[in-house]
Design a protein around this nucleic acid. Structure first.
Lengths: 231, 231
DNA sequence: GGTTTGAGTTGATATTTATCACTATATTGG
DNA sequence: CCAATATAGTGATAAATATCAACTCAAACC
């Protein structure tokens, strides 16, 4: 199922970006009429670094990963996306090009809204503009802290932080399915996949987590926070 | 010399932020009248992470460093600032708090403009707003590439990149004074100061750079680019 | 059903990088 | 000018991390 979503109103979408509340009924209607929708299966690329930022993307269901492509094929997973958040990189206002790639981790339904439309609302609607500014500022801050973590913390600290992020920001539960492979968990926490295995095992031996089959359960969150904080 | 700059017009300042050209004469005048100016000597803190983002800062002369304060006192120098650029962190639109610190590296003359004023122009002036958006987007992209560099490149690659940045973006010359100590050069390139010394010596032995006293001269820029690109 | 493929895992090893201990060389304040 | 202090530099060592070479196991495919 894909194509224009003629009969849908983005204003009443339960997964709408919170900043849409600053748009007028007219603007909402215009946007809803120009909305495209598409489905992706797990593993599919939604957009690729280097492609034009012609559309803003919103997930209406599913989870996707955002990653930077570094030198000789190495990747850095910046974070995971859930419904409700605007997905447009900073390239939109610099060179109209994506600087990171977005790939579906689960089956995903995504809405595409023409960036020209978004930019016109930024121009004409100060409240919406401020909301957009706030959104990219928050992302920028998160990048700062991700960078500090990757550069200054050691592997156990980075892994602890990564697990806490998955539990608290993505799954909202201390028990979660392995949406990320060991390889991807390594790209998320800045280490080789072999070291992901070793550190998870170490955490498991100490009773901090359990890995039942492929599900990870956090048993001792306080200890995990401690490891994360101590680097 | 400090205080309100009553007789100065930010519109005709040779070091003005390029986005000021999008302001009306009236806005420029208002801003000029509410401008504060202050001098700092090398080493002085201009603002500190955690303090309120009450003002946007512009340098009218000198060079300053922007750095993140990480765990147990370790710092990451995000970059150096020259006149002509807006200096406000992403915190301005999130929690009205600075998330990085700004310290003068040379003697610096800085202008302070009330953030309320800047924000009001963002609200009322779409072109100015777009310019602001573009500015923070560019900074965000730079942070991405800084992160990739720090995480994926090895020490020689990071140092080569750092030296090229100093030559091309800050000094506009392949020969420059040691505005950064070895310690700071380490914070800029993500390594311990001892390793800064070792790698500079190695570059020097290979004839890529010369370190005459405390001045660094780049002799073989192409090789430096190669080292930077190969990580 | 057998086989291929890829992820997960493990141990051994190599590489990279930080830390420590120390010397040398400036720089600064009295 | 000299002591005090900070920065620069050096070598040895330890710690952190990546890489390599296997091996296991389960899913996917013919």
């Amino acid at each position: 199922m894909f194509g224009k979503g003629i009969d849908v109103n983005c204003g009443s979408c339960p997964n709408a970006w919170s900043n849409f509340k600053n748009l007028s009924t007219k603007e909402i209607k215009e946007m809803s009429q120009n909305r495209f929708q598409s489905n992706f299966t797990a593993g599919e690329m939604i957009f690729k670094a280097g492609s034009p930022t012609s559309n803003a993307v919103f997930l209406s269901s599913g989870i996707a990963k955002i990653y930077l492509e570094g030198f000789d094929g190495k990747k850095i997973i910046l974070g995971l996306c859930k419904p409700g958040r605007l997905i447009v990189g900073p390239g939109a206002y610099v060179d109209s090009t994506h600087h990171y790639s977005l790939v579906a981790l689960t089956d995903v339904r995504a809405c595409f809204i023409d960036m020209k439309l978004i930019k016109s609302y930024v121009q004409s609607n100060p409240l919406f503009s401020e909301g957009y500014m706030k959104d990219i500022s928050e992302k920028s801050l998160r990048t700062f802290y991700k960078m500090m973590s990757l550069v200054q913390k050691k592997m156990p600290g980075r892994m602890a932080e990564g697990l806490l992020a998955l539990a608290d920001d993505i799954f909202m539960s201390d028990e979660f399915a392995p949406i990320l492979s060991r390889q991807e968990l390594g790209e998320f926490t800045g280490m080789a996949k072999e070291n992901v295995v070793r550190i998870l095992k170490e955490f498991s031996n100490e009773g901090i987590i359990s890995t039942n089959g492929s599900t990870i359960t956090i048993n001792d969150k306080e200890k995990l926070k401690l490891i994360s904080a101590n680097g």
